[in-house]
């Protein structure tokens, strides 16, 4: 942990425009929202910022965790709560998810939180309207879109928080994340047509180029999880994520062997009451995220400014949409 970085971030107060509501970046039709450039008003021309993307399946508590990440004080006064909308009764009864698109919120401490829509979700399958190309089956479309969102998360975030609940094993999501990393890499490799003749230097300490993956196991029933359970989850995650492609072991978290950045959060039955206060485990997660080594972005020698990052994000999303690899991957589905 690097508390100094954390405190630096906490003390940096240069808000241009206070953000209270999340900003919808990518809408349900999978396109960048009209007027997405307005988001620039919330961004600064400075480089000390942290982008956290929260991904997960339906109903695992992504938006809740994303909102908790935004909290700056342990017990914020009433009315000052800022955050993403979390699912309630209507979503439950429709079997749908709450966050329909990619939402983003910026804190005055320059923490940018991306709340991704539910991935591989039945709700997404429900709402996905078949494209004009009817040859693409529905489930393939959902798979492709999940891949694309994960690819975006891996490309533009400093930290990707993978949320899964304690009961769902998250196998599919982890597989999908791994696939997104593979496809990303393959996409980048084919994108650069110039073949360098010099072999890559091995053993050189390379700067961090990929985003850090943190696995958060939400809704644990026992407050300090048993070692057996932790071991199991760690093994399960490390089986499906390969360290060569994903930066997933930064030495933080509760994993017994330390191969995965694993965090657990207890199940809070009545979310509404305790939402505004940070639980100790949530604080641990938050400070771990803040203290991580920041990655670099390809194409930028020095860390980009917030606005440059936003431009980069938009560019990456357009690239991802254009790339046929994601659909190709889904076509391989047996």
């Amino acid at each position: 942990l690097k508390p100094s970085v954390f405190s630096d971030l906490e003390n940096k107060v240069v808000p241009s425009k206070e953000m209270r509501q999340p900003f919808r970046l990518i809408d349900l039709d999978f396109k960048l929202c009209e007027g997405h450039t307005a988001f620039n008003a919330y961004l600064l021309e400075q480089t000390n910022f942290l982008v956290v993307g929260v991904i997960g399946r339906q109903g695992v508590g992504k938006s809740t965790i994303a909102s908790l990440l935004l909290q700056t004080k342990l017990n914020p006064p009433a009315g000052s709560d800022r955050g993403f909308r979390v699912s309630g009764r209507s979503e439950l009864l429709k079997g749908s998810h709450c966050t329909g698109g990619l939402d983003v919120l910026v804190t005055p401490q320059r923490l940018i939180v991306l709340d991704f829509p539910a991935l591989l979700a039945p709700g997404a399958m429900d709402t996905t309207v078949g494209t004009s190309d009817s040859r693409i089956p529905l489930e393939m479309l959902v798979q492709t879109r999940s891949l694309q969102f994960m690819a975006l998360a891996l490309r533009v975030c400093h930290v990707v928080v993978v949320v899964q609940d304690s009961r769902e094993q998250g196998t599919e999501l982890l597989k999908c994340l791994q696939a997104a990393a593979v496809v990303n890499r393959s996409d980048e490799a084919t994108g650069t047509h110039t073949i360098r003749s010099t072999p890559d230097l091995c053993g050189e300490s390379k700067p961090l180029v990929s985003s850090t993956v943190m696995v958060v196991c939400n809704k644990m029933s026992s407050a300090p999880p048993s070692l057996q359970a932790l071991t199991f989850i760690e093994r399960h995650v490390s089986r499906h994520l390969r360290p060569g492609l994903l930066n997933m072991s930064s030495g933080v978290g509760e994993a017994p062997r330390g191969t995965v950045n694993l965090f657990t959060l207890p199940f809070i039955r009545n979310c509404a009451k305790e939402r505004n206060s940070l639980s100790p485990s949530m604080q641990t997660l938050r400070s771990a995220i803040m203290g991580l080594e920041r990655r670099s972005f390809p194409g930028y020698d020095s860390p980009p400014t917030e606005r440059a990052w936003f431009e980069y994000t938009v560019r990456q999303w357009e690239k991802i949409l254009k790339s046929s690899l994601y659909l190709d991957y889904s076509r391989l589905f047996p």
Binding site: R57, P122, M125, Q143, E168, T171
Partner: peptide, 12 residues
């Protein structure tokens, strides 16, 4: 299923 949400893996 272990939760009250349908796992799309079932569909695929």
């Amino acid at each position: 299923f272990t939760t009250h949400v349908l796992d799309t893996t079932c569909i695929t």
